[in-house]
Nucleic acid binder design. Sequence first.
DNA 1: TTGCGTATTAAACAGTTGTATCATGGGCTC
DNA 2: GAGCCCATGATACAACTGTTTAATACGCAA
Lengths: 223, 223
Amino acid sequence: MGNSKEQTNRTATEGGTRERLLEAAGEIFAEKGFRKATVREIVRKAGANLNAVNYHFGDKEGLYRAVFEHALHVCGHLDPETIRKLAGPAPEQRLRAHVAWHLRGLLSEQRPPWLARLRVREMTEPTGVLDLLVERHIRPHFLTLVGIVREIVGDGITEDRVRLCATSVAAQYLHYHHAKPVVTRLNPELKLDDAGIEALADHITQFSLAALENLLRDEEGSA
Amino acid sequence: MGNSKEQTNRTATEGGTRERLLEAAGEIFAEKGFRKATVREIVRKAGANLNAVNYHFGDKEGLYRAVFEHALHVCGHLDPETIRKLAGPAPEQRLRAHVAWHLRGLLSEQRPPWLARLRVREMTEPTGVLDLLVERHIRPHFLTLVGIVREIVGDGITEDRVRLCATSVAAQYLHYHHAKPVVTRLNPELKLDDAGIEALADHITQFSLAALENLLRDEEGSA
DNA sequence: TTGCGTATTAAACAGTTGTATCATGGGCTC
DNA sequence: GAGCCCATGATACAACTGTTTAATACGCAA
């Protein structure tokens, strides 16, 4: 191994290897999950020694937790374009922006942020970080969605029902990541490149909008 | 390598270790997935020897494959009530029957059939059995759903779009299993007992119906 | 220089995994 | 009974896991 990376520990806590470990671990954890990912593979990818994980993070779980905190600071925020759209007046456009942003984070291959994939990994296989993740990220995003849904359906529906509707919306874009191997088999025409992702966001938005608007009518009709 | 697979036990000793292994492995595989489940835990639950897995199924993966084939014969079929409703004339009722059947299989705790849970496990973590599973089970169910959706939306929508709509419907009930820990945190009022499952099926059906009917209107309007 | 603290390396450790090996038992035909 | 086949049992084994320990290189102050 050609080493010769260093030198210069600019700070006592942030060396080169520590950062590289976080990056490498993020990718591998996102791809394989906590259990399947091995420390040896992570340190190999990071070009570090086997002991580096235990030295810098105590143990494997400490690294896992640190990866989340690191990722939340680096790429957990919305892009300016999405922020602008989410702040707009039309709830339809806000719904589209919300759906598209999540879908991109889950399916876009080119970008580095494995945070989204780590997040859904934690959803299906909780490891203890889930509580922190729910409170600091998932719930805020969910409440944003709930607000959008509420604005679309109006005041004639209970809060519980609005949350169920928001869950139905989120379920759709999450599904394309959760069950990706099956979805691509059942929908062979699907192309999940950038254009395909936007088209999918269109579908999910239209489908959900249609549901929410019609639900409103039903409520008005039956009220 | 003695390939003593399926043809051996023809006698009434069918209730032997082979059967018990399939049952125990089904539960454990469904709960923990292929990788996390250990052979030792399976044989302990089955009351069999450690070697039993290798003897009867060659290796762990052979057991896994056999569990699927076994489960498909035992509990892969619809119950009579669901069959009756699915054969009915009203597509709304058929949609409700489809959604409720899948939801029950995924969330009902009392029943034995871990087939549904095994199925979604394979969706999120394919292990090679997925192809067989898709062709023999998932796709048929999906095509049933596609048929129902087509009947609701009419002929003014492309087949690709109909499949996307069916995917949106399926995504909803699958989500309650995939992301169960998160869903229950975000919707604390949810009770996933039998009554709660039926209520959930009502919501998903109404949401999807509203979407499909409104989509039809949009198609007519823009046509 | 010497000493000290920190980061990296290499090797070893203890635990668990799936699988293979060898021996045992039990029913069957001869 | 003897011989044989099939199912089971107890144990061994090699590979892999996360973690620990001991040794080394480097920077810097006294």
